[in-house]
Structure formats: C-alpha cells, structure tokens
C-alpha cells in the first residue's frame, strides 16, 4: 500500500517534534546495512542458517537465566505463533558462554519453537557488535537490516510486532509511528465532552416527557458548548413541547447557523414555520 501524502506529513511532523534520538543499530551493523548469513550450530544438534529468503528475518540475541531474556522469549513465543502464516524466518541466538542446560530450560519454559542457534566464540556477537541483551534485529529477504530493537520494559512486544508488520508491509509508516510513539491516552473531559453527556441525558429526559428537567439539562449542555448544534435542536423540541413555538423556532435557527447541513433542524423549522 502506498502511503498518502498526509500520512508522510504526519510522520514528518511527529519526527520533528521528537527530541529523542533514533536507536541506530548494533555497533558494527546499522539499519540499512546488509548482514552476511551464517550457518550456525543449533541447541538441539545440526546446523541452521541465520537468515533465509523469507520476507522478514527476525533474530533475537538472548542470555541464559536473564530476567529480560526470559520475558522476551515468553512474549515472542506468542508472536512467533501469530506470524506462523506469514513469510517470517525466526531464530534465537545465544553465546556458547551460556550453560547449554540453562538455555534449554529457558527455551522450554518460554515455549518458542524457532531454531536456537549457538554463537560459538561469540563470532556473530563480535561481528555485529552486540552490546545489549536481549536485542532483536529484523532484516528483509536480502538480509538488509530494517530495524534494531534493544529490550524495553514497556511495550517491547508491541514495538517488535509493529516493526515486523511494517517489514511485511502490513502497516504503513504512520501506523508504525503510532506504536513507536503512542499518543497520550487522554480521558474524555472538558466542556465539549460534558456538553455531549448532558445532551444525552436531556434526550432521555425528553423521551420520558420530563420536559422541565430536559430543558434544564439541555441548557446546561449549551452553556458548556454553545456550538453544539444538536443541543439547540433538542432545545427547540423541548420548548415546542412546552408550547413555546417562537422560542423553538429561534433555537432551530441557531442550530442551522451552527450547522447549515442539519437536515433535521431544517425540517423541524419548516414544519414550525408552516401556517397553522
């Protein structure tokens, strides 16, 4: 899917607003670099390739007995299942400095099914310059490093999932950006929100034919947000129900000033203006 211009403008605006640096990559492999494949021994015997020609290659460096690594493997076991129908090649990598038995326990506890590769003599660790653990790299089918993601305590799986979906072209740059830098989770508040709620209450009171209380509440709604056209329409209905025809017409006129496309207001006003 080709992102629209507005999407790119949004992304650029977000990027410009962010004072935080972008995490670039491993010490010796930056995003954009092509990383050479390697055939490596596996935990269970035999060998397996670091990369394949899948659309996305995900490789995870982890350590034995490390809290963050264990948490990451547990979460990624689910992510691995989620992406089973996608063209994704997963591997987990550990240094041969880690006791194999401990690694096997962590792998079994996490429930990952991906091949677990042994980095003998820290050859890959040193070649890429891995400084942190756990850390995840994602490459494309040509083994170009698309993203590098060190562990974060908050939203790690969400971020890696989004980076992977972006690599698979399932989401666009704007959606990735929303996951990397989620908007503040605000709670509806303020006068506009209160006006809307009062209007809803006034509608219920009007339906219950409690015109006096409906009038009181729709007026409160208008006080909170005088530009809420729907509140003026309800005000007109309450006033009309109370026999105040002229005041009702004025309320409808105000509603139409605020929202000339409000067909209900227009119809009501037409009905009220017709000769009796």
């Amino acid at each position: 899917m080709r992102p629209r211009l507005t999407t790119w403008i949004g992304v650029l605006a977000l990027a410009a607003a962010a004072p935080w640096p972008v995490v670039q990559g491993f010490a010796f492999a930056q995003t954009g670099d092509v990383i050479a494949d390697a055939e490596m021994p596996t935990l269970t015997g035999g060998t397996h390739h670091l990369f394949s020609n899948a659309t996305a290659n995900v490789f995870i460096f982890f350590r034995a007995g490390q809290e963050h690594s264990q948490a990451t493997l547990r979460e990624f076991a689910k992510l691995e299942k989620e992406t089973r129908s996608n063209s994704v090649h997963w591997v987990a990598i550990f240094s041969d400095r880690c006791p194999t038995n401990d690694i096997a326990k962590d792998v079994a506890a996490a429930g990952i099914t991906m091949p677990v590769l042994v980095d003998r003599g820290d050859a890959l660790y040193g070649r890429l310059g891995v400084a942190l653990c756990p850390v995840v790299g994602i490459t494309d089918k040509d083994h170009k490093l698309l993203s590098y993601q060190p562990f974060t305590k908050v939203n790690y799986t969400d971020v890696v999932r989004a980076r992977l979906r972006y690599a698979l072209k399932e989401i666009d740059a704007a959606e990735l950006e929303r996951v990397l830098h989620p908007p503040a989770a605000t709670t509806p508040s303020g006068d506009a929100s209160a006006a809307h709620r009062r209007l809803k209450l006034a509608e219920r009171l009007f339906q219950a034919k409690n015109y006096e209380k409906a009038l009181e509440n729709v007026k409160t709604s208008i006080e909170k947000d005088p530009t809420l056209a729907a509140a003026h329409v309800l005000l007109a209905r309450v006033l009309f129900a109370q026999g105040k025809r002229e005041e009702a017409k004025a309320a409808l006129q105000r509603a139409l000033e605020l929202d000339p496309k409000d067909t209900q207001a227009a119809d009501d006003l037409k009905a009220l203006s017709a000769p009796q």
């Binding site: 640096p21 972008v22 670039q24 990559g25 010490a27 010796f28 492999a29 930056q30 670099d33 092509v34 990383i35 050479a36 070649r127 890429l128 310059g129």
Partner: peptide
C-alpha cells in the same frame, strides 16, 4: 571492523550516521 560480506562500514556507525 567490517560487517562481513557487504557494503563496508568503513567508519564507525556513529560517525557514519548524522543522527
């Protein structure tokens, strides 16, 4: 140090990237 078998990173990443 170079990333094996690919476009060389002649300079360390921090110097290569402006970011």
């Amino acid at each position: 140090t170079k990333v094996q078998g690919k476009p060389a990173t002649e300079k360390p990443p921090a110097e290569k990237a402006n970011a």
